[in-house]
C-alpha cells in the first residue's frame, strides 16, 4: 500500500512539474468555457426544461475533450518511462506489477478529475446568476460527475493499455484515440430500438455513450451503465497488467 501511494503521488506530481499538465487543464477550461458560452446563448433565446448539466452534455464538446485529453494524459504513463529507461529502474525495485499499473491508473484518473474542476466553476456561475433555487440540483451535479468519472476510468484504462504496448508516446496517443473513436462510433451503430431487440442489439445499446452521459447529466444513475463501464475499465486494466507482466514471459 505504501509503495502504491508513493508511486501514485509521484505519477500525479509528474503532471504538475511539466507544462503538459497545465496546458491540458487550460485547454479543457477553454473548451468548457466555449461550450458554456454556446449554452448560455441558447438559454437566452428560449425557455428550457432540462437541467443545465444535461444541456451542457448535449454539446459534443465533452466527447471531444474526453477523446483528446485522455490520449494526452495516458500516452506518457508507460511509453515515456520505457523510452527514457526509468522503466528498468522502476521494475528492478521490489514493486509488484499490479501496484505499478494501479498507481499509474489512479494518478491519471485523479488528474483527469482535477481537469474537470473548471466545469464546476461554470455550474456555480449558473447557480449564482440564475437566482433560482432549483437551477442546479446537487443530485444532478453528483450524477454528472459520476458519469464524467466513470467514462474517464474507462477511457484512461485503455489509454494506459495503449501506452504499455509501445515505447513511442505518439503511437500510444494515436492508439488510444483510435480506440476511443471506435468505441464512441459503436454508439451510433445502435439505434433507439436496440434496447429491446436481440441480445446483440442489447449489447450494442450499452455503447450508446452519448445517450448514457445525458442520463447521468440528468441525474439518472443507471446501474447497468455503471457496471458496463467499470467492467470495461477493469478489463483494460487487466490487459495492461498482462502487458506489463509479459516482460517476464519466457
Amino acid at each position: 500500500m505504501r509503495v502504491y501511494l508513493t508511486l501514485t503521488r509521484r505519477e500525479l506530481a509528474t503532471y504538475f512539474v511539466s507544462l503538459t499538465g497545465y496546458v491540458t487543464i487550460a485547454a479543457v477550461a477553454l473548451l468548457c468555457g466555449l461550450s458554456f458560452w454556446v449554452m448560455l446563448r441558447t438559454m437566452g433565446t428560449m425557455p428550457f426544461q432540462v437541467p443545465v448539466t444535461e444541456l451542457f452534455f448535449q454539446n459534443p464538446m465533452f466527447w471531444f475533450i474526453l477523446l483528446i485529453a485522455n490520449a494526452v494524459i495516458t500516452m506518457r504513463l508507460f511509453a515515456q518511462e520505457k523510452y527514457s529507461g526509468t522503466y528498468e529502474t522502476l521494475m528492478t525495485t521490489p514493486v509488484g506489477d499490479l501496484q505499478v499499473v494501479a498507481a499509474k491508473f489512479t494518478a491519471a484518473w485523479l488528474f483527469y478529475m482535477i481537469m474537470w474542476l473548471p466545469f464546476l466553476g461554470c455550474c456555480y456561475l449558473i447557480q449564482h446568476y440564475a437566482q433560482q433555487a432549483g437551477a442546479l440540483d446537487p443530485g444532478v451535479l453528483l450524477g454528472t460527475y459520476l458519469g464524467i468519472g466513470l467514462f474517464g476510468a474507462f477511457f484512461i484504462s485503455f489509454g494506459a493499455c495503449a501506452s504499455a504496448l509501445t515505447v513511442n508516446q505518439m503511437v500510444a496517443a494515436m492508439l488510444s484515440m483510435l480506440l476511443g473513436m471506435a468505441v464512441f462510433a459503436l454508439g451510433y451503430v445502435a439505434g433507439p430500438g436496440f434496447v429491446s431487440g436481440p441480445w446483440r442489439n442489447q449489447v450494442l445499446s450499452r455503447f450508446c455513450f452519448f445517450e448514457q452521459m445525458r442520463e447521468f447529466a440528468h441525474g439518472v444513475i443507471d446501474t447497468r451503465t455503471v457496471v458496463v463501464l467499470l467492467s470495461l475499465a477493469f478489463l483494460f486494466l487487466f490487459l495492461t497488467l498482462r502487458v506489463v507482466e509479459s516482460r517476464r514471459w519466457k
Binding site: S84, G85, T86, E88, T89, T92, T93, P94
Partner: peptide, 15 residues
C-alpha cells in the same frame, strides 16, 4: 531478489 540488489542500468536513467 530485487529487495537484495541495487541496480544501476546502462546510461543511468533518472527522473
Amino acid at each position: 531478489v530485487r529487495r537484495r540488489i541495487g541496480y544501476m542500468p546502462e546510461n543511468n536513467p533518472l527522473h
